[in-house]
Amino acid sequence: MRSHVEALMYVRTAVNSSLTLPPETAAPSSRRVLLIAGALIIAATYLYLVLVQPTEIAGGPGSPAGLITLLGFLGGGALLVAGILPGLTTQAVVLMPLGIALNISFGQLAGSLGLPIYVDAVGTVLVAVLAGPAAGAATGVLSNAIWGLFNPFALPFAAGAATIGVLAGIAARWGMFRRIYLAPIAGLLTGVVGGLLAAPVAAFMFGAAGTVGTNAIVAAFRAMGDTLIVAATKQGLTSDTIDKLIVFTVVALIVYALPRRTRNAFAFVRRHRVLLGQPSPKPTAGEPLRPERIPDEGRAGEK
């Protein structure tokens, strides 16, 4: 079986070198500078908003908090995308618009089903699980940028979406999707970080106005005398953890139900053995998947 895989890999290398154009050669060092700069800007923006502003009421006259939120989070996200995109394979790039479209349509579907959560990160988490943290982060940022064309309120949440993509990819790489019961735990942890990052955006850009449910939570904390940023953070931690827990579970269930040939077509899935085990004939929410310790690598060629 192993030799079969090696033969396939040899053929692929040979095809790449003789028949297709050479891969794009953006200097990895300049890309790394962009990535580090983007991550630093996002972190600095968050620290500035949380450490410097809490004494001041959100968006008071002359306060640059709104501007810094938008430029820091959106600009940092743009730098991340600029650093990530040149290094992605065509396969990952083609997966990204699919993730973005899924984010938008699942968000709408959740609304039409009357679910009390957003579920608008399904595409980002799916891309991160199949193509890795970098592709996940870029999908998160671009998803919010594109959704922002129709709903401008999504724009400044780009940095939070990038973080969710990165964390989902790392969770996949660490094998959190190898067991169906580990995925919700990864989702919960991602939700905590996502909620913390989203809170200053909600507070400083939009005065914490959101949906009926989130507003009720913010109002309750405000009635207890919390400052706006604290109330928004508590609300973010409540809503985002539940949301991401469900999103990660839904993605794990969907990925395990995909045809094996489809999911093993992704190099990231094969290289890091993101998914293990043969899906049971009829996986349902309550039934844990049967783990099987045979790596799937090389089986694709058998058919």
């Binding site: 790039v93 990204m96 618009p97 699919l98 973005i100 479209a101 671009l142 594109i146």
Partner: peptide, 10 residues
């Protein structure tokens, strides 16, 4: 490509 494809795909 990602911008165009996502807008067309959504």
């Amino acid at each position: 490509f990602v911008l165009g494809a996502a807008l067309g795909l959504a």
